[in-house]
Design a protein around this nucleic acid. Sequence first.
DNA 1: AATTCGTCCAACCGCCGTGTT
DNA 2: GAACACGGCGGTTGGACGAAT
Length: 203
Amino acid sequence: MGRQPCCDKLGVKKGPWTAEEDKKLINFIQTNGHCCWRALPKLAGLRRCRKSCRLRWTNYLRPDLKRGLLSHDEEQLVIDLHAHIGNKWSKIASRLPGRTDNGIKNHWNTHIKKKLVKMGIDPVTSQPLKQEPNNTDNPNSTSSVSNDISKEPKSSSTKNVETNGTTTEDESSSAVTRQNSSKDSENNLLNDEELFSYFHDNN
DNA sequence: AATTCGTCCAACCGCCGTGTT
DNA sequence: GAACACGGCGGTTGGACGAAT
């Protein structure tokens, strides 16, 4: 039978949001809340799909959003969480107040993934990678990696240098603990309660 | 100065889980 | 129980921008 499209394509606008659209969405949600995304575009006078509205609100317009790059602590938390629950970006985001799943996902894909690879860790499984030709003389891959990391921001923009200035040893050490801890969890994803208790214990 | 490359991030798409009829 | 509607999630894309060449 097939699902119907999420919204009728007729007259539905796509692409970047204008300031005016943002204003409409904010005004509507501030006065009415987002009770029903399906009806919202019409009621708010927007020619947008419900999904587009929800995404715009949650990823960009929400008043409690934190903008900018993740701090070192936040990044560390993302890495640890990811090691335990995998690509559950919304769950990870829920542990980082003011951060969105989209933002975290973006940061993971552009930054953290590469860092982990450099550290000799498979970003997908959080397990140590098989030795690459480049890493041949570092059986303990994490040790040399931490040095790499400290040099790494070279390719990053200047914004990055600011926030990453304090990185290095914490990252590698955490990677080691993750390797150990991820061992017991293997592929067993933690549910929310387990996750909570895990972090409760670690804090 | 022009081009290429890498990074950042907003936005879209398709699928899934769940609640309702 | 099946069909449907809806909200939400994760993967991916593409444009803007700055740095490097």
